[in-house]
Design a protein around this nucleic acid. Structure first.
Lengths: 109, 109
DNA sequence: GGAGTTGTTTGATGTTTGTCAAACGATTCT
DNA sequence: AGAATCGTTTGACAAACATCAAACAACTCC
């Protein structure tokens, strides 16, 4: 009973090694900028295209975008069973680039 | 006498048509992010690679990057004689995406 | 007018990227 | 065990991209 499904974390850059140019490159794509909008509420989401408003994309394409976001340091991914729970690394990004995430989320179309 | 060299302006998107995803794509490149650092002081610069700390790049490559920045709405270019004077569109970007440019410039490596 | 300057444009080349499809791995359910 | 689910990995392919080189255009200076 008392055991929650904690799961493992997929590899991601250390908070201090997040590079601005990689973050901007990750977000400089229509699909991934839309993902930022999804994650902006701080909640975690699975990778299912339908759950992300990306029904027009193949699941492997979504997986590809997920990897780029994670390797850029924008998102973190927790593995529980078959599911992946992805969310914004808000604290890490705020610490590394103060004000950037807030400005970006406000600027979202 | 009283006449200053005003010159013409190269085509650029209207302030309200600047798209966030294009701005991020423009800045998600090592060379162009470095250019942002150059322009961060608000001054205008010529396109000479040497004047921009881009001595390792061919002049046509610099011209290519200039065009991407300008078409994304990041910079504006004034033509005076043989020279181009390029600078940040700080007012337009601040109006469109409040706080973004400040956060970006502070986050620059 | 001719030479030098400043940057653009076009073509070529190798790299990266976004996408899908198929195969696979791990997990969960029956 | 067998089947279904969730997501990753690999391969393939076209489009976009960064870069250089050469030709070009416009301007300035002698």
């Amino acid at each position: 009973m008392g055991d929650e499904p904690i799961g493992e974390w997929l590899a991601q850059p250390d908070a201090r090694e997040i590079e601005l140019v990689k973050v901007l490159h990750a977000l400089g794509d229509p699909v991934r900028l839309r993902l930022l909008k999804v994650y902006a509420d701080g909640e975690q989401y699975s990778c299912a295209p339908g759950a992300l408003g990306l029904d027009h994309l193949h699941k492997s394409t979504v997986s590809h975008h997920m990897r780029i976001m994670r390797e850029a340091g924008v998102t973190s991914t927790r593995v529980v069973g078959r599911s992946r729970y992805v969310r914004l690394r808000r604290d890490d990004l705020d610490a590394r680039f103060p004000g950037l995430l807030d400005a970006l989320i406000k600027a979202l179309p």
